Simulated assay, not measured.
Amino acid sequence: MRNLAVLLIIGLTVYCVIDVIRSTTHERLGVHPALWVLLIVFVPLLGPLAWLAVRWSRRTAAGPDSPSAPRRATGPDDDPDFLSRLDDDRRRADPGASDDAPPAA
């Protein structure tokens, strides 16, 4: 049971260090990431919990439309401009093909 607790603390520490490195200055309250990493590593349970509290409060306070909010990557098939360019390219390449016909392999 004690080994499980140690592994959980190590996992939380590794997660928080990676999260600090990937965070923005706004999410870190303007503090240099090295200072956060030192706090997380040298104060085993309180450091990661402090980081998670700060990160959670900054990300939820910012809202989903703020510039500091993490952006989700979208695929090109979610972009209507990209899809229309694909259709235009396909029509130019084979002007006799109908839009309902599957592409020739």
Rank of each mutant, 00 (worst) to 15 (best):
M1Y: 07
R2Q: 12
R2T: 14
N3I: 10
N3Y: 07
N3P: 04
N3K: 13
L4S: 10
L4T: 14
V6E: 12
L8Y: 05
L8H: 11
L8M: 13
I9D: 11
I9Y: 04
I9G: 03
I10W: 09
I10A: 14
I10Q: 13
L12C: 11
T13I: 07
V14W: 13
V14S: 12
Y15H: 13
V17K: 00
V17G: 00
V17R: 01
I18Q: 12
I18D: 09
V20E: 02
V20D: 01
I21G: 01
I21L: 13
R22T: 10
S23E: 04
S23I: 01
S23C: 12
H26V: 11
H26K: 14
R28Q: 03
R28E: 02
G30V: 03
G30Y: 04
H32V: 05
H32F: 08
H32I: 04
P33K: 06
P33D: 03
W36L: 01
W36A: 00
L38G: 11
L38V: 12
L39R: 08
V41D: 04
F42T: 15
P44L: 12
L45I: 15
L46C: 05
L46S: 06
L46G: 02
L49E: 02
L49M: 14
A50Q: 03
L52F: 03
A53T: 02
V54Q: 00
R55L: 03
R55A: 08
W56A: 14
W56G: 09
R58V: 01
R58F: 02
R58N: 03
R58E: 03
R59D: 01
R59C: 06
A61M: 09
A61I: 01
A62R: 07
A62T: 07
A62N: 08
P64Y: 05
P64Q: 10
D65N: 11
S66E: 02
P70R: 15
P70T: 03
R71T: 10
R71G: 05
R72K: 14
R72M: 11
A73L: 13
T74S: 13
D77V: 04
D78L: 07
D78A: 15
D79S: 06
P80H: 09
D81Q: 08
F82I: 13
L83S: 06
L83E: 11
L83H: 02
S84I: 07
L86A: 10
D88Q: 15
D89S: 14
R91G: 05
R92T: 12
R92K: 12
R92Y: 01
D94N: 15
P95N: 03
A97I: 09
A97E: 10
S98Q: 06
D99T: 10
D100H: 08
A101Q: 15
P103R: 14
A104D: 10
A105E: 14
